[in-house]
Computed example of a mutant assay.
Amino acid sequence: MLHHVEIWVEDLAASTASLGWLLTRLGYTANSQWANGISYSCGEFYIVLESGPDAKKQRHDRLAPGLNHLAFQAGTRQAVDTLAAEALERGFSLMFAQLHPYAGGAQHYAAYLEDASGFEVELVAAK
């Protein structure tokens, strides 16, 4: 079981507006904030967005070694569709649009989204 994930971001305000918004829509609660970061928790697990002085100022590259994306259970197919539509209104873009919502295969209903900083999230429907 993961304890936490820390994501270094280029622009904390922009990432809070996109990824932070998404986390709260998925049931996470913002529980700690400081000058260079914010923490979102769900139960004992938490995710940190941080942009301190050591973080490089560059767009996230999901194809470089390291984290490619985070996948979240997002409820029913309708919940995935609703959340994806809301995310598009908040600056996310739909990845693999020609294959949506089956970009992960015929049995995998999901929305693959990318925020303006290049960070990918996958919203997965329950089976």
Results as ranks from 00 to 15, higher is better:
84 A>V: 04
14 A>D: 11
45 F>P: 05
104 G>S: 13
126 A>W: 06
114 E>F: 05
88 L>Y: 09
12 L>P: 02
61 D>F: 06
65 P>W: 07
91 G>H: 00
20 G>I: 01
23 L>S: 02
87 A>V: 02
11 D>Y: 03
66 G>V: 02
92 F>I: 03
82 T>Q: 13
22 L>D: 02
51 S>E: 08
122 E>G: 03
102 Y>F: 15
5 V>P: 03
98 Q>E: 15
104 G>P: 02
73 Q>H: 05
49 L>K: 04
1 M>F: 13
21 W>C: 07
47 I>V: 14
96 F>R: 07
74 A>Q: 01
46 Y>P: 03
112 Y>Q: 11
35 A>Y: 08
32 S>E: 11
48 V>H: 08
31 N>K: 12
98 Q>R: 08
81 D>F: 02
13 A>F: 06
75 G>Q: 05
10 E>Q: 11
102 Y>N: 09
8 W>M: 11
2 L>K: 02
125 A>Q: 01
59 R>S: 14
21 W>F: 09
93 S>E: 13
56 K>T: 10
120 E>I: 04
53 P>T: 09
126 A>C: 15
60 H>I: 14
22 L>K: 00
99 L>M: 11
60 H>D: 12
37 G>V: 03
21 W>R: 03
99 L>T: 07
114 E>N: 10
6 E>R: 11
49 L>E: 10
69 H>P: 07
36 N>R: 11
45 F>L: 06
114 E>S: 11
36 N>T: 12
